[in-house]
Nucleic acid binder design. Sequence first.
DNA 1: GATGAATGAGTCTTCATTCAT
DNA 2: TATGAATGAAGACTCATTCAT
Lengths: 172, 172, 172, 172
Amino acid sequence: MFVEYGFHGTATAKVAQEAGVANGTLFHHYKTKDELVLAIYVWIKDELEASLAAITHDSDFITPKFKTIFTATLHWALQNRGKFYYLRQFELSPHYANVPTGDNQTILDRLIAEGIRRKILRTHPAELILTLYNNHVFGLYQYITQADLEPNKQTAIISEGYEMIWGMLKYA
Amino acid sequence: MFVEYGFHGTATAKVAQEAGVANGTLFHHYKTKDELVLAIYVWIKDELEASLAAITHDSDFITPKFKTIFTATLHWALQNRGKFYYLRQFELSPHYANVPTGDNQTILDRLIAEGIRRKILRTHPAELILTLYNNHVFGLYQYITQADLEPNKQTAIISEGYEMIWGMLKYA
Amino acid sequence: MFVEYGFHGTATAKVAQEAGVANGTLFHHYKTKDELVLAIYVWIKDELEASLAAITHDSDFITPKFKTIFTATLHWALQNRGKFYYLRQFELSPHYANVPTGDNQTILDRLIAEGIRRKILRTHPAELILTLYNNHVFGLYQYITQADLEPNKQTAIISEGYEMIWGMLKYA
Amino acid sequence: MFVEYGFHGTATAKVAQEAGVANGTLFHHYKTKDELVLAIYVWIKDELEASLAAITHDSDFITPKFKTIFTATLHWALQNRGKFYYLRQFELSPHYANVPTGDNQTILDRLIAEGIRRKILRTHPAELILTLYNNHVFGLYQYITQADLEPNKQTAIISEGYEMIWGMLKYA
DNA sequence: GATGAATGAGTCTTCATTCAT
DNA sequence: TATGAATGAAGACTCATTCAT
């Protein structure tokens, strides 16, 4: 519902109703609407992270790992459209400021940092690389979603998308 | 205010107050809040378009024109942060569906279409190219904004950003 | 309603309904419930003050003025029971802390201060005299109200109440 | 908590938490919040009564007993401010109507009744004497509390307070 | 055209109370 | 006897919109 109507546009009463619980029950578990919105974010984020963790190993070589993660992220996004969109929506909203700044790094964070250090990726600030990566992934997701492509077309585009970003980010 | 607090988060009463007019006056000029939000979008969009039109000519060669537009867009975005952010915010929101689908093409739309036709840009659907382009621009804007770079650093990053996207989108 | 059900016990919606206006109208005039509660207090307080001002003059002798004010206050209280009770209720509640501390003194404040200075009243701190006075007045009000006396009985009791407090507060 | 935030302003959940028991446990012992509020009142009232009973005897002479009780009540009030304030707060609230009207008389009730009968106190209705007495005591408590006096100053004021009320209530 | 008081549906949140475990 | 999750009615407050002046 948050994806469909936005955070402000979704009433807690409707959420509770949809969840099949009473209004007050929601607030028994989440003290405020903001807390709920944040909890959902963390939950989705962890789910995506877990799904990436399941197919990579710390010992993997960086280059293929990069491809694996990119591809897997997009496939996950397309199979979990609402969830993926939620992440974007949340990160672009003021809610993002509420995320407790633990220093727990993502697989992707670590991969990029290592790629830069070993001169496999361009020697830009990790933050820049990450931002461009995320926007590229989201751009691809947006296109595929809106064009409503068939599955094999989707895979082809993701493949091309990978080539593009790799050409863009790999070390000279 | 819409940028700072979001569309839902900004009350029309506050907008009117900030504008120095009475509550009802707002609704005298814009029948609904949605109409106001849309009008602001169109206004900003036109302003950006005009600023790009002022520095390009139909007769320009495609390759340099592409660079000019990319660079000018980013500089405009950094000098009009609120306005640029408004565009993104609007386009990612349900409000975007309210934009009347005239077939008036942007300079960028036409440039991309022509670039593809003449095999200067990759022969992907124009829609894909455009989406990736927009996300790349926004990614750069996001990074520069958050990193709070000095002006000459900004220019350097924009330049690099251009090289990256050109490498990504140019034909073969 | 505040007197009957208490501040917390009275819903703003009920107040609006009783007033014959819409719910939102209340909040158009008073930003919060607290503000309304305070405004009513100030209004009643001013009304009582005005009614006392109408029957006294700065030039009056202190002793008869004291009697006049005491008696008038009690008669006013009995003719405006809700209003008088409201004052007490408010002053004993946490709301009292919200009263802006202007240094505008009451007729009674000035009278007591002058009475002490001229050694017509006991030379106690004015604050003590005032507190005892107010509690005595309220005690009398409480008794008369609960005993539900006839008008002439009321006057008799007020008269006795005056003798009591005068004996208690007058200078040796 | 009831003193600090008022009856309505204090949530049963908070009371339970503060008491270190679960939410439901409270309602296991007191069927409703009102019942709890009343129980606390009775408990405090009994405590004060017991403390007065401990220092008086039925056989005491009325005049000194009156002084003893007055003085002891005020000292108790100052050492048990929350409890004493609770009594007032309760008695001025609609909760007071819930007190079961047993005819169990207070030491003070009996003392006043006897004082009037024996013409040691003014021959007013006992109810009037009692009300004025209670308000005087509370007035003194209010003043001492707000003025934040040192202990020996407190004792002096209580002494003076006693002289005042005795002068006011004693026969002729 | 401009105003701003009035509206009332809608929002988030609180809270006394219940009840299965 | 103790628990605490669940409840849902109620509360204070917001806000886009209307309309008489």
